[in-house]
Design a protein around this nucleic acid. Structure first.
Lengths: 135, 135
DNA sequence: CCACTAACTTGCAATAAGCAAGTGATAAAA
DNA sequence: TTTTATCACTTGCTTATTGCAAGTTAGTGG
């Protein structure tokens, strides 16, 4: 996870990518956002059961790193929704290939929802735009 | 990292993939093998500077999980070379997209070696086959 | 014999993960 | 009007993982 955008361990683009999303949870959150989830409790309710303190810290880091943005959807009390930025949405091809890899090599894994493989990063941003229009 | 192939935290293929390679180092080793490295000291000399105990444990786990195999290339003392299996080599598209992602979104990152984007998983296995023929 | 190399292993301090419980703001129910 | 409930977190604490340095083992070359 990168918090200070300087001082990467190397200039290798793969290594840098792993400093952003090289852990067990970040891409799970990105996946959930790709599937349309946007609220804290949505992420908590995923079957992997992310611990709540880790969810909070990952959301903070992903936002600091520009992969997502949060936007209040109510005040009293203020509550936030999280949306992918283009930078975050562009991880979709990575997710798609990881899913294909598991389907090819791991028995008994589940199926992604319909349309997952044909989705494009741009499609993920439309949801956010619609939300903005309504706000 | 998966060691016991049962008991995934969920059946989601993305989540399962992350149990195999969801950390900061596994894909660095896979990358090095994609680039033709095969010996312990090769992996150690990469610019990211993987700690040696982590390298040893990752090589063990990646082998247990079937992403690579080791093969002695000398005895007295016995020394091993590590090679990608088809399962490991099939992560190449994931690496390629991660590299593209960083090149698009992170300033000042380096370039992959020539031919990286056009390589295919099968190409990575030929090296291993050549090695076997000579053995 | 001594230095040196490759491939590890071990010890240990620091960091991160994971679990459970608590907090603060508010709305809805009794 | 207390009582309960929800959402989005935070805190405390225990365990696990990282990362650094040093040591080990089985050789090779001089």
């Amino acid at each position: 996870m990168k918090t200070e955008p300087q001082s990467y361990r190397s200039k290798c683009p793969l290594s840098i990518a792993l400093e952003f999303i090289g852990d067990k949870w970040s891409l799970i959150i990105i996946r959930d956002m790709c599937l349309g989830k946007s609220k804290y409790c949505d992420f908590q309710s995923s079957p992997e059961g992310i611990p709540t303190n880790i969810l909070a810290s990952r959301l903070r880091e992903l936002e600091e790193n520009g992969l997502l943005v949060k936007r209040p959807y109510q005040d009293k009390p203020v509550r936030y929704e999280y949306f992918l930025t283009p930078k975050g949405a562009d991880l979709l091809p990575v997710l798609q290939h990881l899913v294909m890899w598991t389907q090819k090599h791991v028995d008994g894994c589940g199926e992604p929802p319909e349309g997952f493989f044909t989705a494009k990063p741009e499609d993920l941003l439309k949801r956010q735009e619609r939300g903005k229009e309504l706000a």
